[in-house]
Simulated assay, not measured.
Amino acid sequence: MSTPTTAAPGAPVVDLDLADLRRDPYPAYAELRRTAPLAWVPSVGRHLLTRYDDIVHAEKLPEVFSSREEGSLLLRTVGPNLLREDGPEHRRLRAAAEPPTRPRQVRDLWAGSFERTAHELLDGIAGRGEADLVRDFAEPLAAANLALVLGLRNARPDHIAGWSRDMMAGNSNYADDADLWLRAENATRAIDEAVAEVVRIVRREPDGSVISTMVHAPDPLELTEIQNNVKVIIGGGVNEPRDVFGVGARALLRRPGVRDRVLADPALWKRVFEETARWISPIGMYPRQLTREYEIAGVTLPAGSRVALVIASGNRDESVFERADEFDIDRPTRPHLAFGGGPHFCMGAWVARHEVSALAWPLVFSRLRGLRLDDSARDQLEGWVFRGLTSLNVTWQAV
């Protein structure tokens, strides 16, 4: 299958600056939805699909919109993996890795440890009266929880977090920055070594973790398959809960009325989570490649065409979400796209939902009395392939 490197016949060509997308992609997405819902963007080297209904349609056709993209940045970063497979091979890899991340397992196996880790992190900062809640709490919490679920007993949370950042830099390296590739290569080499050590241990002593489950699956995975899929999980398993936590916490601190309602009715934390993930999607897009000619959004794409499913744009589609640019926990429930869809629905969604909405937010807002934003700090939202706060500086009444 040849890979077209220019716009499909009839597809609009839209020039977008990657630096502008990193700062704030949403104005560009709104214009694309309005005027060019499928457009060739030279700086990205693919067609961007930006309307909700078109993205959902593409997700339902993995036999046409294939995850097996030739030369994908993810393949270059981590090697063959479950996110870049479809059909029986995807099901085999996912079935081996998924059991420890299902809702019951999260509740029964991991929730107690998640809560203890959250309290330990808060114990370490409570007396200070100020902190960066991304650096000092959300990221180490997500990394420690992920190490537990994966079974990486030989990796510290700061290792996990650093590996995730460096691999995600590679996976979004559309500018082909050599330094970013070097960072990603160093991270993946370290992960390979850590996973190999754990695999040797759990072959003798199964522990219910993801690595152990892959080793002891009915159709066991080879070491390289385990290593590559652990890399993929580390990539998304830190940034998604970390970024949803930060964005949602800042949204509530900027909206005292909404914050007070949620604190009075803890059942609303689930709504906060889903609305945060819709409003600022932690993963903004992912690639697909067409296996055959197909018409979508009024354009006939040749076989081999590369398409980005821009789920961040779909989650702001005005035809689906009224006042889509606003943060509103009372909006009518509509399925958002933040965790993908179809066979590739995010495997870690239940872990993220529990650690953020059931634990992290409630504990932070209950334990840090008088929590408020540090107005002197510059906490920036950044990114378009992955998007989140670079920091969340806050103060509170230290005891």
Rank of each mutant, 00 (worst) to 15 (best):
A196N: 03
A196H: 04
E197H: 09
E197C: 02
E197T: 05
E197N: 03
V198I: 13
V198R: 05
R200I: 06
R200Q: 09
I201H: 01
V202P: 06
R203F: 10
P206H: 03
D207C: 05
S209D: 00
S209V: 00
S209F: 01
V210D: 07
V210T: 02
V210F: 02
S212N: 07
T213V: 07
T213R: 14
T213Y: 10
M214R: 07
V215L: 15
A217N: 06
P218G: 08
P218A: 12
P218Q: 04
D219C: 12
D219P: 09
D219M: 11
P220R: 10
P220V: 11
L221Q: 02
L221Y: 14
L221S: 11
L223C: 08
L223N: 12
T224R: 15
E225H: 09
I226K: 07
I226Q: 05
I226F: 14
Q227K: 15
Q227E: 14
Q227I: 15
N229Y: 10
N229R: 09
N229L: 09
V230M: 01
V230F: 01
K231H: 07
K231S: 03
K231T: 01
K231L: 01
V232M: 01
I233K: 00
I234L: 13
I234D: 05
G237Y: 00
G237L: 02
G237A: 02
V238P: 00
V238R: 06
V238N: 04
V238F: 02
V238Q: 03
N239E: 14
N239C: 04
E240R: 01
P241I: 03
P241C: 07
R242S: 09
R242A: 08
D243M: 08
V244G: 04
V244R: 05
V244Y: 05
V244E: 00
F245N: 12
F245M: 15
F245I: 14
F245K: 13
G246N: 10
G246Q: 11
V247M: 11
G248T: 07
A249W: 05
A249M: 15
A249I: 14
R250T: 01
R250Q: 08
A251V: 06
L253C: 11
L253V: 08
L253H: 10
R254M: 14
R255H: 13
P256G: 12
P256D: 11
P256T: 12
G257F: 07
V258S: 06
V258A: 14
R259H: 13
R259F: 06
D260Q: 13
D260W: 03
R261D: 00
V262N: 11
V262S: 08
V262Q: 07
L263K: 12
L263D: 04
A264T: 11
A264M: 13
A264Y: 01
A264S: 11
D265N: 15
D265Q: 14
D265I: 00
L268F: 11
L268H: 11
W269Y: 15
K270F: 05
R271M: 05
R271I: 04
F273T: 12
F273M: 14
F273L: 14
E274C: 13
E275M: 12
